[in-house]
Design a protein around this nucleic acid. Structure first.
Lengths: 112, 112
DNA sequence: GATTTCAATATCGAATGTCTATATACACGC
DNA sequence: GCGTGTATATAGACATTCGATATTGAAATC
């Protein structure tokens, strides 16, 4: 994942969370997932193909998402991913974990 | 950095931010920095030596912190680190970046 | 029906950061 | 001087992300 106009990698590992959450709303194919993340974050997160596809394969391998070849509106061959039941449970775990992290960082930033 | 009872690395790269912020309050030596982070986050962040020292060297190399050998209360030889002026500026940047990330993730998690 | 075009998917190598585990340095008590 | 305990340091392994490039397949054009 890449963040607009920044290179110092303050963040890593949230990509899975973002993808799972995006698929929770509705099934999408790879490029559409990245596009939606870019739009929703107003360009803060720009997921590169080199990050996106390895992540999708990883999540599929963990059986948190399931991919199926289909065609999009333009009749192009795309691999549509949907969240599995296990993925939904994992998303809940990741959400809690993220909240925990944000809280902990806030404690460090604000305590003193 | 390691998070209590979790292995899935939802986060990476915030260690610098946490260290800089901790040193903003007052100079501390390595182990004391880790100890304070552990306490303030109530055990959520446990910084291992193998993460801590490479991070300190990295930050020192960037001239964001400056280390000086001294002795602690128990007369032990410790390397005390303080935040430099450049480090203070960098901390401000990192803080804004962190806020930006938290906002962006929240947008993904809550938009739908 | 061959070729071009284009978006979607896929892969590769490099760089980085963190982990576990182990090693070194030094002060103190004995 | 030898063990003990704490602080600092290092080594090797591993995972994730990036930039760049390759592959695939359908449609369009000729």
């Amino acid at each position: 994942m890449k963040r607009q106009s920044d290179r110092t990698d303050l963040l890593r590992g949230t990509l899975d969370l973002l993808i799972l959450r995006t698929l929770e709303l509705r099934p999408l194919h790879g490029v559409a997932i990245a596009e939606r993340i870019r739009q929703v974050t107003q360009g803060t997160f720009v997921v590169q193909p080199g990050s996106l596809f390895p992540a999708l394969h990883r999540l599929e391998h963990e059986a948190w998402i399931a991919g199926a070849w289909t065609t999009n509106a333009e009749k192009r061959r795309v691999k549509s991913y949907r969240l599995t039941a296990a993925g939904r449970r994992h998303l809940a775990v990741q959400r809690r974990e993220w909240d925990r992290i944000v809280t902990a960082v806030a404690q460090v930033l604000e305590t003193g």
